[in-house]
Design a protein around this nucleic acid. Sequence first.
DNA 1: ATTTATACTTACCCAAAAGAGAGTATGAAG
DNA 2: CTTCATACTCTCTTTTGGGTAAGTATAAAT
Lengths: 135, 135
Amino acid sequence: MTDRSLRQELQDTGPTDPAVDRLVEEVIGRVADKWTMLLIEILTERECCRFGELSRACTGISQKMLTQTLRAMERDGFVTRTVYPVVPPKVEYRLTDLGLGLSKAFCGVWLWAEANFDKVECARRDYAARNADEG
Amino acid sequence: MTDRSLRQELQDTGPTDPAVDRLVEEVIGRVADKWTMLLIEILTERECCRFGELSRACTGISQKMLTQTLRAMERDGFVTRTVYPVVPPKVEYRLTDLGLGLSKAFCGVWLWAEANFDKVECARRDYAARNADEG
DNA sequence: ATTTATACTTACCCAAAAGAGAGTATGAAG
DNA sequence: CTTCATACTCTCTTTTGGGTAAGTATAAAT
């Protein structure tokens, strides 16, 4: 894809109504979040997860953040939350179609990150070196 | 793309070295940010922008945040910053190849958001209604 | 009777993020 | 001599993010 066609693809999606713009940006702001992206990736790979499983898979997340992020994802329609009335409690999370669509959209970002994280590291080293000399 | 092939596409990218995982997640954490995404989109559409132009295009951003985000983007190698030694100052920002690649990766997310923000709104209404009754 | 397991919820706290607003440099225009 | 333009930078304050730890419910296992 060329720069030109990319620019067009972004512009051809509509007459960019400012109200729609705000809504789109709100959704982006909500979804462009590390934990949300990670959880969506995990749920894409494992399909169906209990709370504890997600907790173990999502390295570094606290219980609080996990609960909080999952609730937000449920509210936004990305996951379903199924509570089994047993003791001890059992709750299963799985992606909805909407969540799966988001997962596909994120896929490109993950692939880009996997392919380019080394370039980012390089850029940081260069920047640091440049600023040590001249800055 | 089916669920199955998406899962495979995510898994086929390598033996998932935990060290690489952490680096990838760090980059994602850095890049999955509302302002970064917005600025990359604006710079994709306009190609070359001065500070003030970005400030006007990126509704709601403060000067401080704009400077800060642009610096981080420069450090990570997504934009170049060209300073013209004139008065009043003139500084131009434009995407690097790396930044353009990221822009393409984000493209899917923007298109998804434009196509699905209404479904998210729906989901939120449903969730609120459900919790008003039963919660 | 006590422990265990699970998925939370609540309360408290700190650090980091982010906004507001003033200050800076400087040459040209009036 | 004052004003203006631009792209910051600095300081101060508020807001948010996110961690820790304790509490809850309850049936089954010991």
